[in-house]
Simulated scan of single mutants.
Amino acid sequence: MHADDIRPLTDHRCLLGESPLWHPDEQVLYSVDIPARQVLRWREGAAAPDIWPQAAEPGCIAAREGGGLVVARRDGLWTLDPATGQQEQLALPPYDPAQQRYNDGKPDAAGRLWVGALSDARRPEAALYRIDANGATAMVEGMAVGNGLAWSPDGGTLYASDTKAHTIYRHAFDVTTGALGPREPWVRFPERQPDQPLSAYGGRPDGAAVDLEGAYWVAMFEGQRLLRLSPEGRVLQELPLPVRCPTMPCLGGVDGRTLFITTARDKRPAEELVAQPWAGAVLTLRVDVPGLPANRVRR
């Protein structure tokens, strides 16, 4: 694995790419562009992604048992059938959509969908929700930007970050009941100081994925790097990137060893975008350790 081997998937650029999903059945990559209000599908060999416009910002997507996708948008949960383009609302949001939206999320092994919300004002007023047949339950409150959701390979640990707080947390997790243990700060990162140049800033934790060895891959937004952390929180690898703002990694491909990284260009300085033409692309790289198959939503 070497930074020189990183390549953009296509020439397409998202404003704020997020939630890459290697679909376990279709064997294609899906993702979202949040401000552009799009769900995208990246097919091997295609010059551009297939695009499904959304009526509200999509924070994340998940594979749905029985086919299709679940899309967590500002205005609630929706299904999307890529074969027909049909979209149907599953549930209204459990927050005020004038002030918050769904952000990062994934299903657990039992098919419950977990989504962290984001406060538009970046205040600690959002929550991490567990969504099942009984509706949405706020499992962790007091978050500003819910992010970084992932599980250990044995399912006994749930990771979740608050990007605004520069902190990744972990919880003991019971897959049978969906219960969480106490929130424990796992890894903290230094906040950017006044007048600190971006080149000296390590970034803040955004989206994440866990590989087969239990290592946690995290995108460091504005830090121009991806970190691979051990279950103890130790840095195993640091992958420098050719773009300032990675948003989320995903492991997939036929053998699970292709690393996909969504990135952002929205509201970035003009000189940065000139210097970093891959900003907004989905970046790819081959890695040694495969990822875990994506879980499906059972509703």
Rank of each mutant, 00 (worst) to 15 (best):
R192K: 00
D211N: 06
M248E: 06
I261C: 09
G59I: 01
A294M: 13
A172Q: 00
L198Q: 07
Y159A: 13
S199H: 10
H2Y: 02
D174L: 14
A98G: 02
D11W: 06
P94E: 12
P290D: 04
P94M: 06
M1Y: 02
L16E: 14
N295E: 13
R170H: 13
P58S: 05
R192I: 05
P24Y: 13
Q38R: 11
A208L: 03
A179C: 00
Y216D: 01
L273F: 10
Q87R: 10
P205H: 02
P35H: 05
Q224S: 13
E213A: 15
A150P: 07
Y159N: 12
N103E: 06
A3C: 11
V28E: 02
C250Y: 02
T177K: 05
A208Q: 02
L283M: 11
P49N: 07
A138G: 00
R183V: 15
G17A: 12
D11R: 06
F189S: 13
A219M: 06
Q99W: 14
V39P: 06
L15Q: 10
Q193I: 07
P107T: 03
M143G: 04
P53R: 03
P242A: 15
P93Q: 14
L15N: 12
A121K: 15
D11F: 02
L118C: 01
E18G: 10
A55Y: 10
E238G: 12
A270F: 11
A179P: 02
G111K: 14
G253E: 02
L229Q: 08
C60T: 04
R265H: 10
L198K: 03
